[in-house]
């Protein structure tokens, strides 16, 4: 199996505190992966490193067929290379309409000049409408994102992620604050997305993870504690001790 992203031997400290400790991780081009771990295990920090928000003290992050290092790229360049991210706390542009949010995310040229002279093409608008249907916000298309409910903002952010059409989706706690039906829908979306691209989901909810039916990586104190199927990791004694047993 080829790898899309390979993280090896990465460490990062904040004021002497090792948030990520010699972490290694791999994911293929069309793979769904769940990451679990107790609070403060370093799950969000791990995503920060891949997306260029946090620079690791040591280690390598290698991307794609050309094996480029993500460490020398800016956040914007990494995103353009095909890494999309959904944040733990939903972050959409609240002063702008749902449509504007989606149009901004749509994978089109990102340079200032191209953007200045950008006119939404028919295909773009059709794609926005399609996405809006998918995330259940068709009727809200022209409302400001700031007026949406928490769950709807989560959805909008997922929609923006899909609009970006990334090769790798990093999704931090997507189901937080969602109703059971919405969770079900999210599961479907993520499983569907993982057919054509790599998807990494951070989640606390075991039931949610079970429905994803994918390989699971358990993080603890900044490094990988166990990896394998959900049944495999949940029967691992270390995992039970630090995470499940609490």
């Amino acid at each position: 199996m080829t790898t899309l992203l390979e993280v090896s031997g990465v460490s990062v400290s904040f004021d002497g505190f090792r948030a990520i400790n010699n972490l290694s991780f791999q994911i293929g081009p069309a793979e769904l992966r769940a990451i679990i771990g107790p609070n403060g295990a370093g799950k969000t920090t791990f995503m920060d490193i891949i997306t260029g928000k946090t620079r690791p003290d040591e280690g390598r992050v290698i991307w794609g067929d050309l094996s480029r290092s993500l460490l020398s790229m800016s956040e914007a360049q990494i995103a353009q290379a095909g890494v999309g991210r959904k944040f733990q706390k939903p972050t959409v542009f609240e002063d702008q309409s749902v449509e504007e949010n989606l149009l901004m995310a749509l994978s089109n040229p990102r340079g200032p000049l191209a953007v200045l002279f950008y006119k939404p093409a028919k295909a773009d608008l059709a794609r926005v409408a399609e996405l809006a249907d998918e995330i259940g916000l068709r009727a809200q298309l022209f409302r400001k994102a700031g007026e949406l409910s928490h769950g709807q903002k989560q959805w909008l952010e997922i929609g923006m992620l899909l609009a970006q059409d990334p090769k790798l989706l990093l999704v931090d706690e997507p189901a937080a604050g969602m109703t059971p039906e919405e969770r079900e829908h999210t599961t479907q979306l993520l499983v569907e997305a993982a057919k054509t691209r790599a998807v990494v989901v951070v989640e606390h909810d075991m039931e949610f993870i079970r429905r994803l039916g994918c390989r699971v990586t358990v993080l603890h104190e900044g490094s990988v504690l166990a990896e394998g199927s959900l049944d495999h990791v949940t029967s691992n004694q270390d995992v039970i001790d630090v995470y499940l047993g609490r």
């Binding site: 800016s74 956040e75 995103a79 609240e94 990102r110």
Partner: peptide
């Protein structure tokens, strides 16, 4: 409103 978020969308 949130320049970090704009960066993660791929805008310089």
């Amino acid at each position: 409103d949130n320049e970090q978020r704009v960066r993660f969308l791929g805008y310089a």
